[in-house]
Design a protein around this nucleic acid. Structure first.
Lengths: 161, 161
DNA sequence: TGCAGATATTTTAAGCTTAAAATATCTTCG
DNA sequence: CGAAGATATTTTAAGCTTAAAATATCTGCA
């Protein structure tokens, strides 16, 4: 490859890197803004909000493993977040009677109420931040991201179980 | 609002939230994969690589403030990263003679060599991860992200200086 | 000159994150 | 039954990140 023609002299992957940096910058900017607003308005962190969001969609509760998988973070990570949410009385942890290794986590009534209040405002914030994009553009972006995800997974899914 | 017609029952901002979560998931997946590969192949973290990348484009060096701004992180953050890179002999810090508050940071020769080796492979990795997208799709994605960034900044730029 | 405010950076406290090791429990199969 | 391996979770060590407070230095102006 790259015989005596040198189609792309010193630019192997340069366009992709620029695109990647733009994607990263965009995501970080939105994430940072949401994090700041969550902290200022509700004194809650993004990970804790995310943790509660998983539980809110599962009234019967979730195990720690299910939560870490749906949040796409490591097991050890969610332990600390759960610890703090439990200390605030927003979640409850109960070891399952049929498998004493697993922990069933549920939102407390206070947790459910707190989450509902935050989620409503959070939706509005996200809608605001994205309001410069038309419906068609949002669809396009969603489709391109889906294609990108597929492309990435192709190179990723073969990791040690 | 939401008179007796209820145009969008319980879905205020739901489409935007889904899009945002997809964007976040996509970015996290790529970022995580690059982080893992950098660690396994070069025993380097993404922030350190990023820090060196800024310096590599500025042979005359940069101040800590310039670096934190270009990396879009807080000042305190880069202090720690610089500390570790200096301990590894990859960067050098010198207080500026004309303004003793500022620190001029440069890559050492070892740092420049190390970065060059990592960057080449990193470019290939990114190109691989994005290779499921055609040239036109990459352009579309870049444009949509630019529009999104504009939209976000509109709601963001008015923060306490 | 000298002090008030601005600027550059570091420090601190708290929390998030990962990878790897450690624990505890369960399951399977001889 | 009982041990070997699998599974669920926590712990640990290291590092990243932020916001806010603390330092140190500089700049402009009375």
């Amino acid at each position: 490859m790259t015989a005596d023609l040198k189609p792309q002299p010193a630019a192997s992957g340069a366009a992709e890197v620029r695109l990647w940096l733009r994607l990263l910058a965009c995501t970080n900017e939105i994430e940072g803004e949401l994090r700041r607003r969550l902290r200022q308005s509700f004194d809650v962190t993004l990970p804790r909000f995310d943790f509660m969001a998983q539980l809110d969609r599962a009234p019967e509760g979730l195990t720690m493993g299910q939560i870490s998988r749906s949040m796409m973070v490591t097991n050890g990570n969610v332990t600390g977040i759960a610890e703090r949410l439990a200390a605030e009385g927003l979640i409850e942890r109960r070891t399952s009677p049929d498998d004493k290794r697993t922990v069933r986590v549920t939102l407390t009534e206070a947790g459910r109420r707190a989450f509902a209040g935050i989620a409503a405002v959070h939706h509005d914030w996200v809608a605001d931040l994205f309001d410069g994009l038309g419906d068609d553009e949002r669809d396009q972006l969603a489709n391109l991201l889906a294609r990108l995800k597929t492309s990435v997974t192709k190179h990723t899914e073969d990791r040690p179980a």
